[in-house]
């Protein structure tokens, strides 16, 4: 299973999102400092996530991102080097 697929499975299970967009943005970051570099088998290191879920209601921005980081802790400890997160409730997203 790809990293994106495993993230999708975990986020879907935990957040029941009404919108979940996972975009692999690895190519744009290839080769910069701190990047896994040569030992890393290309791609799947930088992702943009757009998540709309009722779970975020009443939570601060920091708390929302911590929820997502918690769900994806294995990925963040492993192949995923950076996540860019957009979080919203269905009301905020107008859904």
């Amino acid at each position: 299973m790809s990293v994106a697929q495993s993230m999708e499975t975990k986020l879907t299970r935990a957040l029941k999102p009404v919108r979940l967009v996972i975009e692999d943005d690895s190519a744009r970051h290839a080769g910069h400092a701190g990047h896994p570099g040569a030992g890393h088998k290309g791609g799947e290191s930088h992702f943009n996530l757009d998540i709309v879920s009722a779970v975020f209601a009443g939570q601060s921005r920091v708390a929302r991102q911590r929820i997502v980081y918690q769900i994806l802790q294995d990925e963040l400890a492993g192949p995923v080097h950076a996540l860019s997160l957009k979080t919203a409730t269905p009301e905020e997203a107008g859904l």
């Binding site: 921005r61 920091v62 991102q65 911590r66 980081y69 802790q73 963040l76 950076a82 996540l83």
Partner: peptide, 17 residues
């Protein structure tokens, strides 16, 4: 308890990434 860099602190308080 935040797995990524950068991290901004204002007056000792974590603001975000």
């Amino acid at each position: 308890q935040w797995p990524t860099i950068p991290q901004l602190y204002v007056k000792g308080e974590f603001v975000g990434g």
